[in-house]
Simulated assay, not measured.
Amino acid sequence: MLRKFKLDSKLIKEIDFGMIVTIILITLIGVVNIYSAVGMGNAEKQFFFLIFSLVCLYFLLLIDYNILENYVVLFYWFNMLLLVLTKFVLGSEINGATGWIKLGPLSFQPSELAKIAMILMLAKKIQDYEGKINNLKNFVITAMYAVIPMGLIVIQPDMGMCMVSFFIALGIFFCVGLDGRIIVAGLFGLAVFIMTVWNSGLIKGYQKRRLISFLNPEGDPSGDGLQVTRALIGIGSGGFFGTGVQFGANAGKGYTDVFVPENHTDMIFSVLGEHWGTIGCIILLALYGILLYKMIKVAKASKDIFGSVIAVGMVSYFLFAILQHIGMNIAIMPITGITLPFMSYGGSSLLTTTLSVGLVINIGMRKKKINF
């Protein structure tokens, strides 16, 4: 019975343990910052989520990713149905968006899984079309599988997750060689789409003000610009070496710990900047750089289009999420509520990001035929 849950030694040799160590290190840095920001209770939960996520990652590695291809269509449409149910039946409103399902003391964000479903579906369709994405029919059909989840996420409304989904699709289409003219047309279409949604009434006035507050946070430092203004003060106060992480009775008394709203989720980078300083931010970015580099290597070495596109999709997701989260903490990107992968508090976010990397590891460890 236990043999079913044991990886073959030949496969174990192909595992990129560097990726696993990197995500553990980033998550542990996040746990320390969550402890500083909101206390031991949430830090303990995040550490538990880490252990649970690593166990799920192990079971994911047992399954050949090519077998998963057989269930992609079912997984995709299940997630689309879940998005519909979240909006109209099961969802709870948090920060103006009906995008969460509460399960007792826990909350789950279906759009986190939906973006993985979208990546898998795009990978399957592009493999079905043997990479011939510049064929108009192939492109339109494939693009629709990206448009559907984005549309369902917009009506929640969750512009941050919609932006993530769009740039995942853009990264995939760019890397598989989509004609540049189509990409430019897509960006133009995005601009029109944003203007339409902006004036549709889906986004409320206070949400609009929050989105554009980064352009002039000092204009309303106690209102819409409060979050980013205080985040900037906290990061600036950290200097090069940071103020240091305080434990025990001194925990939770730093500037960002007290004065920055959503400091353990949307603004976790500001907590890092204060307590760890520039050197801490550099270390974090270096760890992300290592992770992205390894994922890109897998994308290049994959034995098939399906695996390569999945890896590209995950790289696009992580790259945009990292740039967007850090950007909104330093006032160069709009405040969209995008969490920082492995750093921000949240069980569903940590699980899905861990499984995302797990898929890439799975592809890398099966990049060549292994004879048993």
Rank of each mutant, 00 (worst) to 15 (best):
V192P: 00
F193W: 00
M195Q: 11
T196H: 13
V197H: 07
W198Y: 14
S200E: 05
G201D: 09
I203C: 04
I203K: 12
K204T: 11
Y206R: 14
Y206F: 15
Y206W: 13
Q207H: 09
K208V: 02
R209M: 06
R209C: 09
R210M: 06
I212D: 04
S213G: 12
P217R: 04
P217H: 05
P217W: 06
G219Y: 04
G219Q: 06
P221D: 02
S222T: 15
S222Q: 15
G223F: 11
D224Q: 05
D224Y: 12
G225I: 08
G225Y: 02
L226E: 12
L226A: 08
L226N: 14
Q227P: 04
Q227V: 05
Q227N: 09
V228N: 05
T229C: 13
R230M: 11
A231F: 05
L232R: 10
G234E: 01
G236P: 04
S237I: 00
F240Q: 04
G242V: 10
T243E: 13
G244I: 06
G244R: 09
V245H: 13
F247H: 10
F247L: 12
F247R: 03
F247Q: 08
A249M: 11
A249P: 03
A249H: 12
N250A: 15
N250I: 01
A251Y: 00
K253M: 15
D257F: 00
D257E: 13
V258P: 06
V260C: 08
P261S: 02
T265E: 13
T265D: 10
D266M: 01
D266R: 03
D266Y: 07
M267E: 02
M267G: 01
S270Y: 10
L272Y: 01
L272W: 00
G273M: 09
